[in-house]
Write a protein that binds this DNA or RNA. Structure first.
Length: 352
DNA sequence: AAATCGGGGTA
DNA sequence: TACCCAGATTT
């Protein structure tokens, strides 16, 4: 493929094939920034409802900056990568306090803000402020790799350099915003990871991969390590209309979110066995009735979590409560940010 | 340079 | 099951 013809051709394709999305009808850097943070490692279909809820709850960056962090996390519940939500909030505060409530207009300054890395800085700078800097995301890696025939692994430092250099060589000064979005949209709709639409592709005659039937072989990605298994046993202590919950504070998964007292094992154990552990016995006492839930399987990228919930009902006041634990009424629990797994369990067993 | 972070979709 | 998704941050 001749690099000279690529930008014009793909932008033309974009103009007649792009999806209509709310953050494309605006030049408000706040909305563009919000959409980019939500869409990090997240498909448009999954992120769209969250975007709409955030814009409704916080129409401006000042409104978002003024909100409590827990409220932001609660709105983010179910999206995953919760550091994004905390950085979103931190970034809003930084924009208000350091930049007088207005987003900085250059790649370099945007990059200095929390949660804004190379991709997001390039996206905001080009889309909101028309700076000619290329975005490099999973779509860009894939499209450039296939069309131009680059087999450097995309998750290697050399690959990242090489693809970034090529992308910046291609991005036009005239309309960097349309160009960047065109490449990504093309990757999302046509040049997909599996079963790309090569038979109706405008680049068919110019595509390195198609001419050699290498669509499946490109891009090259080095293998990641295998995932591990974790076995979670949650003690759901029920006292009248309250449940004992705790905020996760350890440096581990779901930091800052609420769940139940957790006993983790590296292999399956009978749930009854968990109740014999010292810490659990202290909390539960002897006169309790026990219900054990079904097994929930939760597949994440680098781990699979098998969870069971052990519901313990007791009329006695619980004395030995662990650190960070306290009782919450059901309406209170509804407002707490929770991992999806815990959220699902609560919906099945309680009316929040 | 490698590890970590979630949840959902797809084949 | 394995891989991917408009990646960023920490170690």
């Amino acid at each position: 493929m001749d690099k000279r013809y690529f930008p014009d051709k793909i932008v033309k394709w974009y103009e007649s094939n792009k999806r209509s999305l709310p953050w494309r009808d605006t030049r408000d850097p706040y909305k563009i920034w919000l959409s980019e943070i939500i869409l990090q490692q997240t498909r448009v279909s999954q992120g769209l409802p969250y975007y709409l809820r955030f814009i409704e709850a916080y129409p401006t960056v000042r409104a978002l900056a003024a909100a409590p962090e827990q409220e932001v996390l609660r709105l983010w519940q179910g999206l995953g990568y919760y550091t994004r939500a905390r950085n979103l909030h931190k970034c809003a505060k930084a924009v208000v306090s350091l930049h007088n409530g207005e987003f900085p207009r250059t790649y370099e300054t945007l990059l200095s803000l929390p949660g804004i890395g190379e991709y997001t800085a390039a996206a905001i700078a080009s889309i909101a402020f028309k700076q000619a800097v290329a975005v490099v995301d999973g779509n860009v890696f894939r499209v450039l790799s296939r069309i131009f025939g680059i087999d450097t692994p995309i998750n290697s430092p050399e690959g990242k350099k090489q693809f970034t250099a090529l992308a910046n060589e291609l991005v036009p000064t005239a309309q960097p915003d349309a160009h960047n979005q065109a490449v990504m949209e093309f990757g999302a709709l046509f040049c997909t990871p599996q079963n790309p639409q090569c038979d109706t592709c405008i680049f068919q005659k110019n595509c390195f991969a198609f001419s050699r039937k290498m669509q499946q072989a490109l891009p090259v990605k080095l293998k990641l390590k295998a995932s591990r298994k974790r076995y979670f046993y949650y003690i759901v202590l029920e006292h009248r209309n309250s449940l004992l919950m705790r905020k996760r504070e350890q440096k581990d998964i779901w930091l800052g979110l609420f769940d139940f007292h957790l006993v983790e094992k590296n292999r399956p154990v009978k749930p009854e066995k968990i109740l014999e552990e010292e810490a659990v016995k202290k909390m539960v006492g002897n006169d309790a009735s026990i219900t054990i839930s079904k097994n929930y399987k939760h597949i994440l990228t680098h781990q699979t979590i098998f969870s069971r919930f052990i519901i313990v009902k007791s009329d006695k006041k619980i004395k030995h409560v662990h650190q960070n634990h306290s009782f919450y009424s059901l309406p209170q629990i509804a407002a707490l940010p929770k991992p999806v797994l815990v959220s699902r369990f609560l919906q099945e067993h309680y009316v929040l």
